[in-house]
Amino acid sequence: MRGVVLPVMTLCWREIVRFRRQRSRLVGAFVQPLVFWLLLGGGLRASFQPPGTPPGTSYVEYVYPGIIAMVLLFTAIFSTISVVEDRREGFLQGVLVAPVARSSIVLGQVLGGTTLAVVQGILFLVLAPAAGLSLTVASVLSVVPVMFLVSFGLTSLGLVIAWRLDSTQGFHAIMNLILLPMWVLSGAFFPITGVPAWLGWAMRLNPLTYGMAALRRSLYLGNPLAAGAVPGLASALGITLVFCLLAFIAAADAARRSAA
């Protein structure tokens, strides 16, 4: 056990220390979604009454859970970029010659990124009243583990890509092609209600749709109507869990195949 736990913990710890020492990352992962929220929420508020939600729900409120998902997504992206940097700067070689299984290395990286994402997600929860949302203790207790699962899945997915690439430029391109569209089509930005059929299917096939649904269901725990027309908590969690597992297996596999 010690042979697995210690390396995983130390890799995770390093991600957190590095993050603390790079202020610009905090800005990127926290301030940017905040600005998005203000711009999108403020700008679309007058023209957009989200269908499928109770009357009176403002767009600022609708997009708030989506912005939490964006916080998680951005942190996941930043921490997976650090894998590409580790390889380019050489740090990874030292880890790869240590007697540590590739899956443990990946687990350490994923947990590091996930921890950072959850902490920032919790910080963002403080802004819930500004969205017109009143959180209960139960909904906070439910939303934190959901944030953990969603970040775990997103960070793993980012690592699947990061372990195959050696330049950050390539990484940005792929992020824009995969991760951002995933976010847009998750129900974070607009609900599935009333979209054209092809778009509806794209959203149903998008794993993040279920993470998004679990976030909404948790934030509105005990008030299912307000969560809108999204999958139920149990099935959303189940699918998210499966997604986490598959993404992690794929990331560990990418790490095993990668030469230094």
């Binding site: 390093r14 590095r18 790079q22 700067e89 050489g90 990874l92 070689q93 030292g94 010659v97």
Partner: peptide, 13 residues
């Protein structure tokens, strides 16, 4: 024990 040609230290630590 391996010493690489390129640095393998984390410069932020």
């Amino acid at each position: 024990g391996v010493v690489f040609q390129h640095p393998s230290l984390d410069s932020k630590l």
